[in-house]
Design a binder for these strands. Structure first.
Lengths: 160, 160
DNA sequence: TCAGCGAATGCGACTCATTCGCAATATCGC
DNA sequence: GCGATATTGCGAATGAGTCGCATTCGCTGA
């Protein structure tokens, strides 16, 4: 878990994503909240509440686990969160925008990649079933992991 | 939970599905195992471990919750199980065959319908991402629930 | 810039789903 | 039918996640 260089990386729009996430929380922007949201957004991959707590405490040392859960709950309500069981049995959380999209999840590093090209309308639903929404996850290996073999967080329960 | 009439219903292949599930457990066919598997197969919808226990105890009164979990674990290892969080926060399990297929899940009754027409190869994965598997869930209302409005088990966390 | 209000936080206790260990029991091959 | 072995039931243990409440913090209006 070498998150050292993380704060040096400033992907385009990361600042905006943090702002959006904080706005979606709908309340005061406190130190712990900002720290948790930044940990979520900058990692861009599935992390356990414990990992998020550790990361958040770098910026806001007083942060507690209860606050991590409360913040995750709020983000989840707004549909901004991807929640998935890891191979370890633990549960991982990753930030994702609010609008509908699908996901590609790297089974090696837990990275969550947004897939906007949604062909949902073309899919074949069973007769008599009225579809109101769907969820599509791709599992595989991301570009970075295809070369580098540093595995740490592996989502479990892929396709059935 | 009025499962009274359930045992009267004998859908085509239900007997085979029970046999397949028992075989996939790979061991002795005991009373509790058979009862649990029959409860899973005949219900054909998401059920909590507690519900499965109650149902299994009709046929095998001594069945314990630990055995329900152990049986579910084995089925899951073989990929024969669909596991999903319900709106109540509880976790529901449903039996599904071993081969790959997707699912349509009724958000009213929890019914899980197998979707064999898988158009996965036509979907667009992100550049640089090597897809090894996928999972597609449709959420909506099944034919029965479209008419009848008896809601009891509602899966949560639909599409993000 | 500062005071006041209401929301957010931290702590620690608590709940409850799930797992574990072990003695008793049932199943299957012979 | 018998014995070896896997499975079961029980009850305790575990651990993630939640809750209540006193304290603290951030935002708003003066």
């Amino acid at each position: 878990m070498t998150g050292q260089g993380r704060h040096l990386i400033e992907r385009a729009g990361e600042r905006d994503r943090v702002a959006d996430a904080l706005a979606s929380l709908g309340g005061a922007t406190t130190g712990p909240r900002r720290a948790i949201v930044e940990a979520l957004v900058s990692a861009d991959r599935l992390q356990t509440p414990e990992q998020l707590l550790a990361e958040a405490r770098v910026a806001a040392p007083s942060t507690s686990l209860a606050t991590v859960y409360r913040t995750l709950e709020r983000l989840d309500l707004g549909g901004h969160l991807k929640r998935m069981e890891l191979a370890s049995g633990a549960v991982g959380y990753a930030y994702c925008g609010g609008s509908h999209h699908d996901h590609a999840i790297c089974t090696r590093c837990g990275r969550v990649i947004r897939v906007d090209a949604c062909a949902a309308s073309a899919w074949e639903a069973p007769a008599g079933f009225r579809v109101t929404s769907h969820e599509l996850n791709f599992y595989g290996t991301c570009e970075a992991c295809a070369a580098d073999a540093t595995a740490d967080a592996m989502p479990a329960r892929g396709a059935a």
